[in-house]
Design a protein around this nucleic acid. Structure first.
Lengths: 310, 310
DNA sequence: CTGAAAGCGCTTACAG
DNA sequence: CTGAAAGCGCTTACAG
């Protein structure tokens, strides 16, 4: 009856509820977990080095969104930070021991393959944030439409009359980094100039470094598409120091729409990734998989946010 | 024997380990938890509204430090975000149901009294980050030495020849906000001028707003002590817009040493709170309390970091 | 439909 | 020291 059950007389129900309240009865979660063989919790696995955890505000947004979406179902979020190999070993051990019913996987550099394949072969329900490179068919995921988002940027820059558009890429072992560069290559088409492509790692410093490199290689550029906001912000600083005006001399566009971007001077034009939506969908898909459904993949459109920098 | 036990012949031990490895045996955590009546996990409770969670990088540092310190003991971190009253009700329910062995309490505005007293009366081991106002004697905590840290700032400004020092306070229902203002009042002594005190809520915007107010009230000030870096950064922007140079016309000092502070122009002079150390000590104290020891309180010294803004 | 019993997989006190 | 048994507090299949 405690579990809902069927019809019970109102007075009986009331009496039971009163008794529950009076005695302060609580189900013992461990006993329940043992009997049902469920953990009633979900892991949020961040396979990311610690510095990025601090630097990139997106993680906080994702964590919060996931925790909120799970709270509705009374499912606690177990946070697992596993940046190093050793931490990933521990994490694998933990995840495959029945401590949680499933895992939300965030920031899956392809170099983290070990832990992903362990999760899959252990049969733990899991949903990835972004495409789980190499496991697209074996694990559900929800990803922003990186390709379309990047194309939007490039079309916008072109329509604004920009002639020589350079790009600072993201890491090439992440789906976002790869897809945004693909879009750039496709857009440039026959006019593609490899000298206008410089590689970054999503950190602000790498954006600054990339911008210096570009200024050396191709002083004539009039636009830069950085694969994320942090790098775009770093690039803008370098341009400023070099005496180039943004957007007059060089337009700058980022990707992510972190809060620092609207506060920057000039405010950064960027592509908004709907992270609240992403984490919400991740939770939904994960609960589906836990409930026995087959894993699904969702791609969510992005939105171009035009501000001052381009 | 699986639990260490006493002397076993090396060959027997080896045989058992081999068997364990071969069959892939794992203890069932739920069965263990039921038998031992322990959850083997700890909650990280953030009673903070969501916007601050994103804006203030200190939370990420604390979460990471706590997760790392707990990982050493193989104890997972259950993240609980409870900004609203409703969320705090759920959190209380959860915490008092045996899901976790203890809780790390972060950002305890005094307005969050309800949840704190529930935790205490339920007898759940807990350690607070910062002084748990109103419960100092009933709950262990680890806090930075806010008073000394603020005094350091004020002495430094005075020694630098600053004559009219204003302050932008933190929220007056947090121990940090209160103690840093106390230090200010005590330092000003007989020369205390209430017009030089303006209240903020630790957000960047409130710092900007406070600065405008100060500029109106007391145009002659030559230094501002903001109770945290975010507000100091907001204040610096307003000074810049108002055509006042930092530090030449008005010196600015913050508190926290977040990463944005060293990157700012001019780089912000501030007080470093050793958050890695704080989270580490919190975990240590909490595990002690869980093990049955009496709760302790630790105050950790801060460090003045002199950069360009003062 | 109801209620007593078995079973979940550990730990631990206890008999041998 | 060792090994079998009881017990942790639930859920659920099953007999009544």
């Amino acid at each position: 009856m405690l579990n809902g059950g069927h019809w019970v007389s109102p007075s009986a129900l009331e009496a039971v509820n009163a008794a529950i309240k009076k005695t302060g009865y609580r189900v013992n979660p461990h006993a329940r977990n043992l009997a049902t063989n469920r953990a009633n919790s979900v892991a949020f696995l961040l396979t990311e080095t610690h510095d990025r955890l601090f630097e990139d505000p997106n993680f906080a947004v994702l964590v919060r969104g996931a925790a909120d979406a799970l709270a509705v179902h009374d499912i606690p979020l177990v946070l697992i930070l596993a940046g190093t190999d050793d931490e990933q070993r521990r994490a694998t051990e933990f995840l495959t021991s029945g401590h949680v019913d499933g895992v939300l996987l965030v920031s899956s550099h392809a170099t983290r393959k070990g832990i992903i394949s362990n999760i899959i072969s252990a049969g733990i329900p899991a949903i990835s944030c972004g495409i789980p490179l190499g496991f697209e068919k074996k694990m559900g995921y929800v990803a922003a439409d990186d390709y379309e988002g990047a194309q939007d940027v490039l079309r916008y820059l072109q329509d604004a009359g920009r002639q020589r558009i350079a790009t600072i890429t993201g890491p090439q072992d992440t789906s976002g980094g790869i897809r945004r560069l693909e879009a750039y290559r496709d857009h440039q088409g026959a006019e593609l100039d490899e000298a206008l492509i410089v590689h970054g790692d999503y950190s602000k410093e790498s954006g600054a470094k990339g911008m210096r490199e570009l200024l050396n290689r191709a002083p004539g550029i009039d636009a830069v598409f950085a694969a994320n906001d942090l790098m775009a912000l770093g690039a803008m600083e370098v341009l400023h120091e070099a005496g180039r005006r943004t957007p007059e001399d060089v337009a700058v566009v980022g990707f992510d729409d972190i809060s620092a971007s609207s506060a920057a001077t000039p405010a950064l034009t960027t592509v908004r990734q709907p992270f609240e939506r992403i984490s919400e969908e991740m939770v939904r898909l994960l609960l589906d998989v836990i409930a026995g459904k087959r894993p699904a993949a969702i791609t969510i459109p992005t939105e171009l946010v035009v501000r001052e920098s381009a």
